[in-house]
Design a binder for these strands. Structure first.
Lengths: 213, 213
DNA sequence: CCATGTGAAGGTATTCACAGCC
DNA sequence: GGCTGTGAATACCTTCACATGG
């Protein structure tokens, strides 16, 4: 089933598998079965096998998957072998935390540029990255950075996104709590932290509620 | 179609609608059509109408939805009228940013307690919340807090989650990049920031790649 | 014998088209 | 005329069962 349209849900799970493989690799294991990976990441074994089957034959029947080979394969599918740098716009509390966040490294990603409008922040260096004036966003094209993380207030988000698109940015991770519009060719993933917390109470049965605020 | 099982995807979208309604309400509008809300939040109009239809008749044909009534209705469905307090565990870079994050207020939520294991942090006050020793997590039961946000390193996550479950926590928003296990009655939403960034390159067409790192 | 890979079945969510109501 | 609410149709994703290969 090598040539097929890839379900979006499969793409969403690929980084999860990659994370699980990286963690297993760090424990010195060489092969892993779909069942073992399933236990590690919390997805059904047959779902994992189906997902991998979209991309080709990664596994060996009776043995499982070679962790290093599979990890490389997923990195290539996700294009993490080619794209490694991201720019950050908005170095407030959340932006600073993202600059210091060690988790991107696992995927080969790093924040290679940071921007803010606040003159007091411009010129400061956080985690080896110098904060630049947001007016310099258009230099991203020459610097061959095609990913951006937006961590600015809602009111500024759409305008910043438009600057990023002009600067040749092709993918945006948006933390601003609002919809942002881009040309179809530019992919946006919006991640609203408060929204995630807000749907949690729904799953708490009424009988079990312990907190009323 | 008042009594029906609610699709999980619908529940996921409810906070999005609520956010859109809150923003519209702040602009002095009283009614909104499914089309206008659709434009505001980036979901199809028929999807919105279908979602609301699971819960009853919120709208008036020819007029639209009363924003205040609909917002209250969604808050009630999500149980945001009853549950307003959350505890934070792990006051590192990300945890501190979450403590300062103003976005929870829109949903009536607040971080009402914070814990860390680092003696240097314990006793400090951030945004009006005093950081307590993680050993005090079990006091959450008496304080009637049933939601928790976990922002600790991967290695500590499972152990912290178990303490939280013992303390009577019923819903967890997990930022640690790993699967955490809980009894079925405790709902966990894991939000791995790096994973979200990592699937963005997939959507960048090869021809358009401008960055290779 | 064990684990993968995959058509087919089953289930869930989205989209459509239009009846009903203001 | 305009907008909601919803059965029906469609598309999508998950789960199953088992053939296939080491």
């Amino acid at each position: 089933m090598r040539y097929h349209k890839i379900p979006d849900e499969t793409v969403r799970r690929l980084p999860l598998y990659l994370r699980g493989l990286m963690v297993s690799a760090g424990q010195g294991v060489e092969h892993i079965s779909s069942q073992a990976l399933a236990d590690a990441v919390g997805v059904n074994a047959w779902q994992i096998r189906k997902d991998f089957s979209y991309f080709g034959d990664f596994g060996t029947p009776g043995v499982g998957y070679n962790i290093a080979t599979l990890a490389k394969g997923i990195q290539k599918i996700l294009r993490l072998d080619l794209i490694r740098k991201a720019a950050l716009v908005g170095v407030g509390d959340l932006g600073s935390a993202l600059l210091a966040y060690p988790g991107f490294k696992l995927f080969g990603l790093e924040i290679a540029a940071a921007f803010d409008v606040d003159p007091k922040k411009i010129g400061k260096v956080i985690n080896g990255v110098e904060i630049e004036d947001a007016a310099a966003i258009d230099t991203l094209r020459q610097r061959e950075i095609s990913l951006a993380i937006v961590a600015v207030p809602r009111a500024a988000a759409q305008s910043i996104v438009e600057q990023l698109v002009t600067a040749g940015i092709k993918g945006i991770l948006n933390f601003a709590p609002c919809k942002v519009s881009t040309p179809k060719r530019v992919k946006v993933i919006t991640l609203d932290i408060a929204m995630e917390l807000a749907r949690l109470p729904y799953y708490i049965p009424r009988a079990e509620q312990t907190s009323e605020g």
